[in-house]
Design a protein around this nucleic acid. Structure first.
Lengths: 153, 153
DNA sequence: AGTAAAATGGACTAGTTCGGTCGGATATCC
DNA sequence: GGATATCCGACCGAACTAGTCCATTTTACT
């Protein structure tokens, strides 16, 4: 599986929309919900979480709505997913959380964590502006080697 | 999240165990279950799926059990996960399955599929023998002798 | 031949998570 | 002050997951 949640899908959809419409002022939840056939209340929560994570800026009131908090190139897909679904972990346990019945006898932690790092790297290497560019074959960021960044909180 | 299921965890644990104990004949469900504190009936199902996927060979009867169907190096982590959790997809839709409310209006499919390919590549590049080698920094494919019980740092 | 140990397979249950909804509060502009 | 928007918590039903139970079949050993 490894499927990402629908909320994360909605978040990415919205982020891409905002990235593709720069200088358009605030876009409301309702507009986005209608545009993509997403239940408005649900999308609202998703957008709120993105605001709390610092990825979006909100503007209340009658002409309110949302806009990107940074440039689209400075927001990665990993940022968006983590804002919605929390820190992305492949295994039940992590460096700080050992809550797993098999922890003591587990022998596959390290290689699995290594795989996780590679997955995070793939998500971190793709920015929201890459989504907006919509070139399926495009290497994110051109010929930039993938930084093997270990996300630790 | 992107967390893999507990069944997949159990499967990888068992596969690694079998890879680290070559030429030991069949290993029974009960032995594996006790070794790793896994409910036996559940593990049994997991192992059965691995057999059906062609990753394990089973041997019924009083001295029966399971053994790798191929060499550990020829079985990837992706193989194991797919055998348990089905084809691994990041998005609800895929090339052949368009069942997703947003399909028509979706604009992030291609970049997301590209990310999926990279994730699959990361999983496919790590073999069960790499798990057994247990060197977190090891490049997949390295010729490393198999330690029986690796003391962890 | 009989029995014990093993895999096989289906049905079932409890718990959790996820997608979605509802209601109300607060801020802003006209 | 009213319309339009974000904000926030509580709630619900459906789906999925982990785990259980039980009955059958296969095999080895005595």
């Amino acid at each position: 599986m490894l499927r990402l949640s629908k909320k994360a899908d909605y978040a990415l959809l919205a982020m891409r929309h905002l990235a593709a419409q720069p200088d358009r002022g605030a876009v409301s939840t309702r507009e986005l919900a209608e545009r993509y056939d997403i239940p408005a209340e649900l999308l609202a929560k998703v957008l709120q979480r993105l605001v709390r994570a610092g990825l979006l800026e909100s503007h209340q009131g009658i002409r309110g709505g949302y806009g990107l908090a940074r440039t689209a190139g400075a927001i990665s897909v990993a940022d968006v997913i983590q804002a919605i679904d929390g820190p992305l972990t492949v295994t039940a346990c992590s460096e700080d959380d050992h809550s797993c019945d098999q922890y003591a006898k587990c022998n596959i932690r390290d290689p699995l964590w290594h795989i996780k790092d590679r997955i995070v790297a793939a998500l971190a290497a793709t920015s929201v502006s890459d989504l907006a560019a919509d070139l399926s074959t495009a290497a994110p960021g051109g010929a930039v080697p993938v930084p093997l960044m270990t996300a630790r909180k």
